[in-house]
């Protein structure tokens, strides 16, 4: 799943290297617009619905955290 998500995010947010940091949100690499793009794509791909709580930085700070968040919503 991690590879699939990385491939998907690479297509919609090519400017962001999701493997480079464990503090993607905290460091401002992922800003609010990128977060919404990411969430929108993952929602479409996996048919999941994100809640506002899932937009907390700890859920999106790294590719592993993103994968875990998606898994928890499946």
């Amino acid at each position: 799943m991690k590879e699939d998500i990385l491939k998907l995010l690479g297509e919609v947010l090519p400017q962001i290297d999701f493997t480079c940091s464990d503090t993607l949100v905290d460091d401002g690499i992922l800003d609010s617009i990128s977060i919404v793009t990411l969430v929108s794509e993952l929602s479409m791909e996996y048919g999941i619905t994100f809640d506002l709580d899932q937009l907390e930085p700890k859920n999106l700070n790294s590719i592993d955290a993103i994968v875990e968040t998606v898994k928890s919503l499946l």
Binding site: S32, V36, V39, S40, S43, M44, T49, F50, L52, L55
Partner: peptide, 21 residues
């Protein structure tokens, strides 16, 4: 961001996207 952008993005925007897709 927290009281308009995120709520709109998670609700109406998703529904709009599904319709437009």
């Amino acid at each position: 961001r927290d009281y308009l952008y995120y709520p709109l993005s998670l609700g109406p925007a998703v529904r709009l996207r599904k319709r437009l897709m």
